[in-house]
Design a protein around this nucleic acid. Structure first.
Lengths: 261, 261
DNA sequence: CGTAAAATTGATCTGTCTCAACGTGGGTGG
DNA sequence: CCACCCACGTTGAGACAGATCAATTTTACG
């Protein structure tokens, strides 16, 4: 991941991004999208019983590998990323508790990108066979399908961000999204959240150089829009930040269940 | 779609992007990903029997709408796009024959982006109910799931493109992708294909201004890498273009069937 | 403490944008 | 049938956002 396991992240233990009380963030997520039966719930619970801890800055899956299991983040923060031949990196998504590292390795032939932890992560590895069984449950299949569609919608919004927004709006938009997503999983307060990420990571996320990212960050701070330091983000006036960055949370589809029958 | 139906596109009739002989591009696509039974094939064929024609530069679905049917492109070229408040536009994907306008409107509450034709398009509208029935067929469900995953992989590659590649590589990469995808559906020859798209469209695809896109195009032409004129793309040396743009077709997952059981 | 990664700042360079003008081709209306 | 018109394409000049290069400072960890 370019940045070899840095000492800076060693002590940011499991405390940082702990996931919710019920300790079954995947269930919570699926239930956002589908009405699960008792049986469904039990099946998902079984499938996610065993886990392992991974240190910060460790690859979970690497591009080119044939993943057989589907990793699931239960606690901590991870990201998808891709490296170019000359070392340039693009971060493609942040994975928060409850996010599956998709069915790519599972369904598709080989990984076309890598996934790595940013903070220490608690990870469940769901075996291929189990996924098959889960997909036979209509409600679970539906939940997973929706979750994939939301991931896709998020990618589209990032594309708009990189293609058509200037640096400050771009970064502000990212913070807006993270606030929403982390609040949805109970990992953000009203106006602040942990973000165990370096400025270099942020630069590789929004397609800027590290130096310019630093300046953009300063500009946002000066404008009293976003404060980022010590791996903590503070947003004094979320509505103003949304306005500023043109953020519209519709693409996150955070309340879908009532919608489709 | 900003550009109101332009006369320039009127005469580019159905001839341009005709889809394959069997006239069932969705089937071909699903069969790339899953082994369909006779029954499956019949069901898909039934579902895609009735169609309509849409003129070039017409919206198929608009952001914010609640789409009830799932449109499917059978002939022609379409695109997903998103508009910002001030009119900036970002094109998010090109849809070629066989591509579903996803299950978004269907599964998710409302469209978070718009879809429009670029050339005249033959479109099948699959009713909600029919999709439900199709999803009950495991092989079909699997094919659709894979197709969604490939769409997602393509979005990720575009993100890398916008985030980390300079203008010339970016544009070259797009042409590489289109060559592959159109060849996969029999709509490109070895080194050339139709692309019924303006330079403005291309600019909004790769996140450049129209002026700079024009210059970038010229640079590629001068370097004898890509010729684009009269809505036709010619690529003298595809391998050289791939090299130049860092294109690796793995993310298109064009031969997956043998892979997963 | 000493060290290395990360953050910050300044100076300079450049890729891309904006503005503005002009060229071009086909469609449309007189 | 011709002339106008409008969208698109092309080119030049100048401005500017963001990149690169090069220190220097800060921070966290050993």
């Amino acid at each position: 991941m370019l940045i070899s396991s840095s000492p800076r992240f060693k002590d940011r233990g499991p405390g940082a991004l702990e996931g919710n009380k019920m300790n079954a963030p995947l269930l919570r997520k699926l239930e956002t999208y589908a009405r699960l039966s008792e049986d469904d719930i039990a099946a998902v619970r079984d499938a996610t019983a065993s886990f392992k801890w991974l240190e910060a800055r460790a690859d979970i899956v690497r591009e080119g590998e044939y993943a057989t299991d589907v990793p699931l983040i239960t606690q901590g923060l991870a990201c998808r990323y891709k490296l170019l031949a000359d070392g340039r990196r693009q971060i493609l998504a942040y994975l928060v508790p409850g996010d599956l590292c998709d069915l790519h390795g599972f369904i598709l032939r080989e990984m076309d990108h890598s996934i790595a932890t940013l903070s220490p992560c608690k990870i469940v590895e769901i075996p291929r066979q189990t996924i098959h069984q889960l997909l036979e449950r209509p409600a679970v299949a539906r939940g997973l399908r929706m979750s994939t569609l939301v991931d896709e919608a998020t990618l589209r919004e990032w594309l708009v961000n990189l293609g058509r927004r200037p640096a400050e709006e771009r970064l502000a938009h990212l913070f807006c999204e993270l606030l929403e997503r982390l609040r949805a999983v109970g990992l953000a307060e009203e106006d602040r959240f942990e973000l165990p990420v370096t400025q270099i990571d942020l630069a590789d996320t929004v397609g800027l150089s590290a130096v310019h990212l630093n300046r953009t960050l300063r500009a946002l701070r000066t404008a009293n829009l976003v404060m980022f330091q010590q791996f903590r983000v503070a947003i004094p006036d979320a509505e103003r930040l949304r306005q500023f960055s043109g953020f519209n949370p519709n693409y996150l589809h955070l309340r879908e269940r009532e919608a489709a029958a």
